[in-house]
């Protein structure tokens, strides 16, 4: 590991100021991804500004009926929070389907959103990778890409975003609150992560020095009936092949509202806008769910090794919505 300077600030603005002066510095949260990437020489920060205990570690109810998650809340604490489990069960399920108990105890909520892709070439400095070293090429397109993206890819990058939490947050229309050199911002989760395009080195729209201070969940009554389903190679402790986060509000057989997001299929958590629009106001049933999934996945451009993800994503979405219709067991 290369050496670095380690600093702790007493305020969020102090932390932002420290990083603003260090173009190659980084914030340190739980460190479960960053420290690993530093060992692999993929991340080479010359300054770490430790923010783990700087931002709130509490989950609080907002006056509008929503919930605010402090950036420093651990993944374990968030998954176990009674308010989250009651009102947004898919969020708790998403967290619990990722990593291990040990990692969830260290990892922070904000850090979860900012983890880097697990594309094997990104993590291997001996191979070309446009995300790690822009302009060197993509090893995955002609190489091992079974786990990688089918939607929104570019000729430069087919990486997927690894966070399960982010998929649930996108489905819930959550927003992140940031503090940065240019002041405070509120960024919808649907806009936080970006598609790779010609600049796959940029995972998110955050600018250098932007610090996530909180994640706000809007009130969404029918999210109390929501589900996060993860398909992976092992029963536990593995990254996703495909995930679906969904909530549905059905009255007298008609879909009043629905939220669907896919994970494991793109460079960002994939909100299924087309599928949602097709379903809203129509009857709720397997045929409708299937047609909506097919419409959403019509733009999929899989590679030779991951074409299986298209029917897998479709079937996972259909099954998840059907199980939600059946209600609590």
């Amino acid at each position: 590991m290369r050496t670095f300077r380690y600093e702790r600030a007493s305020t969020t603005s102090g932390a932002v100021a420290l990083l603003a002066e260090a173009p190659h510095g980084a914030f340190l949260g739980g460190g479960t991804n960053l420290v690993d990437l530093m060992k692999l020489d993929v991340a080479r920060p010359d300054l770490l500004v430790d923010v783990r205990r700087l931002t709130s570690d509490r989950v609080e109810e907002l006056s509008n009926g929503g919930v605010r998650i402090g950036a420093g809340v651990s993944n374990s604490q968030l998954a176990a929070d009674p308010l989250i489990r009651r009102r947004y069960p898919m969020l708790s399920q998403a967290l619990l389907s990722g990593a291990s108990g040990q990692l969830r105890n260290l990892a922070t909520a904000a850090g979860n959103l900012l983890q880097r892709t697990r594309c094997p070439y990104f993590q291997d400095v001996t191979t070309p990778c446009n995300k790690r070293e822009p302009g060197t090429g993509c090893s995955a397109i002609e190489g091992h890409h079974r786990d990688l993206a089918i939607l929104g890819t570019s000729p430069e990058c087919v990486a997927t975003h690894p966070s399960d939490l982010a998929v649930a947050l996108v489905a819930l229309d959550a927003v992140v609150r940031t503090e940065g050199p240019d002041g405070e911002r509120v960024i919808p989760m649907t806009e936080l992560h970006r598609l790779p395009g010609p600049e796959p080195q940029r995972d998110t729209v955050l600018r250098h020095g932007d610090l996530i201070t909180a994640i706000d969940l809007p009130p969404l009554a029918f999210a109390a009936c929501s589900y996060f389903r993860k398909i992976r190679d092992r029963a536990s402790y593995a990254f996703a092949l495909v995930t679906v986060a969904a909530a549905i509000d059905v009255v007298d057989g008609v879909v009043r509202d629905v939220r669907i997001a896919f994970g494991g299929v793109a460079h960002k958590p994939w909100r299924a806008i087309k599928a949602e629009e097709l379903l809203r106001g129509g009857p709720a049933g397997e045929d409708q769910f299937r047609r909506a999934a097919e419409a959403e996945l019509a733009d999929a451009r899989p590679l030779a090794g991951n074409a299986f993800k298209v029917p897998l994503a479709r079937n996972t979405m259909v099954r998840t919505l059907l199980e939600l219709l059946e209600g609590p067991r």
Partner: peptide, 9 residues
């Protein structure tokens, strides 16, 4: 927490 519509409450 693995059941739909039940956060493991």
């Amino acid at each position: 927490a693995g059941q739909p519509a039940d956060g493991g409450s």
